[in-house]
């Protein structure tokens, strides 16, 4: 294994922003900031008390849009994945996060941050499964 050069400061700063944003959603709306849960909940049923989901996602989309406007280099995609691979990846992420009740944000950040064993186990499993997948697919060519 070789460790690539990387900048830990933006990674850490971005992480603190993600943690703060998630804590704000808990403080304001009393909800877990799990993106798959928020999106999936919106898809499975609509009721008037779901507005917070829609506006959170709107903030996520517009915040990403603003960041792309200011710093398009933060959205560079060097993977060159083919159509079928992207399609399969999206399907698996959608299926897996809903069946497994969470993703990187819901289990990885909010769940582990609450010291939930269930979320810790889920996170170890999806990181391990992701690492195995990249091992067998060869990573970036």
């Amino acid at each position: 294994m070789e460790i690539l050069e990387f900048s830990w400061l933006p990674a850490l700063a971005g992480g603190i922003m993600i943690g703060t944003a998630s804590a704000l959603l808990m403080a304001f709306n009393g909800r877990v900031a799990g993106i798959s849960g928020i999106l999936g909940g919106l898809l499975s049923r609509w009721s008037p008390d779901q507005w917070w989901r829609l506006t959170f996602l709107l903030g996520l989309v517009l915040g990403g849009g603003a960041a792309y406007h200011w710093a398009p280099e933060a959205f560079i995609d060097i993977t060159e994945n083919g159509t079928m691979q992207v399609l399969a990846a999206g399907l698996l992420v959608g299926l897996g996060t809903r069946i497994g009740s969470g993703c990187t944000s819901g289990h990885g950040v909010c769940g582990i941050g609450r010291l939930s064993i269930r979320s810790l186990v889920a996170t170890l499993v999806f990181v391990g499964s992701g690492m195995l997948t990249v091992f067998f697919s060869g990573g970036l060519q």
């Binding site: 993977t79 959608g94 299926l95 499964s129």
Partner: peptide, 25 residues
């Protein structure tokens, strides 16, 4: 679910948050 999610994550390099935040690209 976590196994399936991990496979998709490894294939695409996206999890739900960044995917939604990148829509405007």
């Amino acid at each position: 679910g976590a196994v399936l999610f991990g496979i998709g994550w490894g294939l695409g390099g996206f999890c739900p948050g960044p995917a939604v935040a990148s829509i405007f690209t």
